[in-house]
Structures are given as structure tokens and as C-alpha cells.
Computed example of a mutant assay.
Amino acid sequence: MSSFNLTSSSPVTFILNGIPGLEATHIWISIPFSTFYIIGMFGNFMVLFVVKKEQTLHKPMFLLLCMLALTDIGMSTCIVPKALCIFWFGFKGITLDGCLTQMFFLYVFVAMQSAVLVTMAFDRYVAICDPLRYTTILTNTRIATLGLVGLIRAVLFVLPLTLLQWRLPFCANRVILHMYCEYIAVVKMSCGNTIVNRTYVLVITVVNILLDLLIIGLTYGLIIRSVLRISSKKAHRKALNTCTAHICVMLMFYTPFLFSTVTNRYDQGSIARVHVVLSNLYFLVPPTVNPIIYGVKTKELRDKVRKYICRM
């Protein structure tokens, strides 16, 4: 560990330590990491390819699936290649510029995916509560505009986050007990006053993620109210079944995020290890499972994917 201690005159370089306490098993941990990553890349690129090729899939719902696939690809790519370099080759060093770049793109993709999930909830609301006006309310142009707004919002929220991090002075011991430049983990390496940084990350978490959750909750409340007004139980099941995939994706995205946010203040022991593992699975498992969920639950997409797979 002493070899990782850097003097204050050295260039600002951090050491990403991987999973605390499990360094000896990194090579074995890399197997599921690389497997999930490959499967996730294949699944998400397949969604993008099939939707691009098939004119019948050029609809708002599938455009949203493409946005979700792009954010999944971006999130996992920000994490996994560097993690595999740590696992396989022991390349643990990362410069401040590299750390901030990783942090910026990672949290932009996180904020963008949250915005996509909100738009998907609105899509389900219109499809169930106002189906006759669906094609006029949700056009491809309008969905693309909402996606652009979500991207701009993400950049505006995350850019100050990285700029606030850049101004901090860092201590000589810059060993981060993580596999990537997690914001709070980097803040803890600072010798300066970090109250502004901690306050800002709390504010954007509340404004961005919790506000999005509130909007989604209200949207599903309106959906449930509308469904309960339908007398037919078969119609109940059919209406709610259209939301199943979206609900599964939301649970996989928001649940680990909220748990990670609660546990990131712990530095030592098994809780810290659980936090690190869960944080990485959060960026690895959903991108792998999301295209499978929508492939299984969406007949149009499933049939087109099967057609192209059979041609291989």
C-alpha cells in the first residue's frame, strides 16, 4: 500500500483499488463481469440494429428503447473496461483528468437513463389512458425532442459536479476503495473543504432522481386509476401487462441506486464491500437484462430479432 502513497508534488493521480478485501479473487470476479458486458453489448446493439433496419419499428416506443439501449451501452462502457484492466493487468492508476472524464460521462448517462424512464412512463400513460390520441400526442419528433431535453438536463446537472471536483486539493494518499471514480469516494480523498461538493450532489440527487421517481409514481397512479375504471378483468390484465417491462427496468435501475446512495458513507468493513459490489452491478446487470426484458415482453421486437438471429 505504501507504494501507492503519492507526494503532494506529484501529478494528481488516483489508485482504483477494486473491491476492498477481495483483491486476491479479482481474476475470478472478472469472468462474470466480462460475460455480462459482452452479453449486454450484444443485446443492446441488436436492439439498435433491428429498430434501424425495420421500418415497422420506427415508432415512439421503439425509439425510446433505442435511447435506453444507448444509455445502457454508455453506462457499462464507462465502468467495465477500466475494471477489467484492474482485474487482469493490475492497471489501477488514473489521472485526475481521466477520473473527471469518467465521472462526467457516467453520471450523464445515469441522469439520461432516468429521463428516458420518465418518458417511458408517460408513453405508457398515453397508451393506456388516451389510446385514440396516442399517435398524435407521441410522435417520433416529440420523443426525440424529449430525449434531447433529457440530455441537456443531464449535462447541466453533471457539469458543475465535475467542475466542483476539479477545484479540490487532494491528499497524498489517493487510494480509492472502488473500481471507478465514484463521486463521494473521490471527495473523501480531498484535504479541502468539501461541504459544497457534498451539498450539490445531494441536491442533484433529490432534484434529478427523486423528482423523476415522483413523476413516475404520479403517472402510474393515474394509470391505475384509469385501469380500475375498466369493468373487464381481461382488459385490466392486458393494460397492466403493457407496463410490466417498464416496471422491471425501473426496479433494477432505481433500487440499487437508492441503496448505494444510502451506503456510500461507509468506508470500512463488509458494508463498504457490499456498496462497491452493488455499485458496479448497478452499471452492469441492468444493461445486460434490459434488452432481454423488452425482447421477451414486446412481440414485435421479439419477432424481428428472431428473424435476424436465424439469418446468422
Rank of each mutant, 00 (worst) to 15 (best):
175 V>T: 13
120 M>T: 02
247 I>Y: 07
21 G>D: 08
197 N>D: 06
106 L>V: 03
229 R>K: 15
233 K>W: 14
30 S>E: 08
126 V>R: 00
21 G>W: 08
200 Y>C: 01
220 Y>Q: 04
273 R>W: 01
267 D>V: 12
71 T>W: 09
260 S>V: 13
274 V>H: 04
66 C>F: 04
147 G>H: 09
70 L>S: 10
190 S>R: 03
97 D>I: 03
223 I>D: 09
90 G>H: 09
46 M>K: 14
223 I>G: 06
214 L>T: 04
138 L>I: 02
110 V>H: 09
242 T>Q: 15
36 F>S: 10
107 Y>T: 01
170 F>V: 05
93 G>V: 05
63 L>E: 11
104 F>G: 06
221 G>A: 06
118 V>K: 10
150 G>T: 01
158 V>F: 02
152 I>K: 05
278 L>Q: 05
121 A>H: 00
37 Y>S: 04
22 L>G: 02
154 A>F: 02
16 L>V: 07
308 Y>E: 11
248 C>A: 09
121 A>N: 00
265 R>G: 09
192 G>E: 13
62 F>S: 08
238 K>P: 02
124 R>I: 01
72 D>M: 10
27 I>V: 14
48 L>E: 09
4 F>V: 01
119 T>Q: 13
190 S>L: 05
205 T>M: 10
159 L>C: 06
197 N>G: 02
147 G>Q: 06
304 K>D: 00
272 A>G: 04
282 Y>V: 01
209 I>W: 06
221 G>L: 07
288 T>A: 15
195 I>M: 12
221 G>N: 12
163 L>K: 10
236 H>A: 03
110 V>K: 07
195 I>H: 12
64 L>G: 05
7 T>I: 00
45 F>M: 13
230 I>P: 04
22 L>H: 08
169 P>E: 10
145 T>V: 12
81 P>L: 05
274 V>F: 11
91 F>L: 14
55 Q>V: 15
278 L>C: 07
307 K>Q: 11
263 T>F: 12
101 T>G: 14
207 V>K: 05
259 F>Y: 03
191 C>L: 07
162 T>I: 14
225 R>A: 14
177 L>T: 12
113 Q>R: 15
139 T>V: 00
177 L>E: 15
51 V>W: 09
231 S>G: 15
114 S>W: 00
209 I>P: 02
